[in-house]
Design a protein around this nucleic acid. Structure first.
Lengths: 181, 181
DNA sequence: GGACTATATGGGGTGGGCCCCCGTTTGTCG
DNA sequence: CGACAAACGGGGGCCCACCCCATATAGTCC
């Protein structure tokens, strides 16, 4: 299905890496609305090249964050096997904190119509964790995985740059605001 | 304290209203990142005039949404007197739904260092509602009003354009995700 | 009503960003 | 080493935010 068999030219691969490295720097500083021109400049390449490599800002960001998202997915599967019913809450907290810490990621995790795959991987992991949590009586069965991720995402967007806030809000949302009975 | 005693010239006031009307239209269509140039064009005025009337995009948006925010504040005080302990939950839901429905508002309600006053009014009302809710045993006392508003705001930002989603997420966050015991 | 002045306006400049065309360079493979 | 497909980037088109300063005009005082 993936239509890329023939390997690209060496310079293309090299330039791609340069662009991603530059993007990582600039996006870390400026967030999701970082200037694409500046990224290209920092990479020592023309902006046309950037556009040829990445069809859109979202596509570029998805690549920039790919590794981190992959790590979160691995971590989720790990938690699901070691922790059990509480894994979901722990993972959501780590996800939210990481997302709030990594400038630009929050926006990229928002699923779009032409899904940029960032979301897809996490949705799978979240579904597994949610199933375990429901089994352990820690999660209402009618709660959707999409809603759970949307909530974590909203918190992370709002709390971008303030991981303490992100953590507090996520815990509040998981536990509700009523006093413990 | 408010430094504006002398009334402005009639044309200034008229132009200000035209700008606000145009801004309301364009922002409703394009959200918080609407083109200021286009707003000025729609108002039949030069963009310099817009900049002279509103020192920043935020300042313009704050004025655009001022009336709606005021209504929310009134509604909150009303709920606090008629409903009692549940008023907070009801109001937060209405706030979140309204914010998610009104394009551009979510971003404007995010408090900034030089507070644009949109947030201030609501924070007062929320504080009263929260006090009542704590008194009625419906809200944990250690929950901050700022956190509560931040949560509602995050949800609204994320759910902009989808009031059903906004409502679901807010309820989920208020009640927590664990099964009812 | 007319003249004067502080107040207000807008054309257009500057600097930037996004996106893309097309003439040029460069890697690759026979 | 030569030829060709692959990749590049200068620069143009278009839009934006923001601001300067020459011009226009509302309000006022006689």
């Amino acid at each position: 299905m993936t239509s890329q068999q023939i390997p690209h030219r060496a310079d293309r691969r090299r330039n791609r890496e340069r662009l991603l490295a530059a993007a990582a720097e600039i996006v870390a500083r400026d967030g999701a609305s970082a200037s694409l021109e500046e990224i290209a400049r920092r990479a020592g390449l023309g902006s046309a090249t950037l556009h040829r490599h990445f069809s859109s800002r979202e596509a570029l960001l998805a690549e920039v964050f790919h590794e981190g998202v992959e790590r979160l997915a691995v971590r989720g599967r790990e938690l699901n096997e070691t922790v059990g019913g509480d894994g979901l809450a722990v993972w959501l907290e780590e996800l939210t904190r990481y997302t709030a810490t990594t400038r630009g990621l929050a926006v990229s995790l928002r699923p779009t119509e032409a899904d940029s795959s960032c979301h897809g991987v996490l949705a799978d992991v979240a579904a597994d964790l949610a199933a375990t949590a429901v089994g352990a009586g820690r999660l209402r069965p009618e709660v959707t995985v999409d809603d759970l991720l949307a909530l974590a995402n909203g918190i992370a967007i709002r709390a971008e740059g303030d991981p303490e806030l992100a953590t507090r809000l996520l815990r509040m949302a998981i536990n509700g605001v009523a006093p413990r009975t």
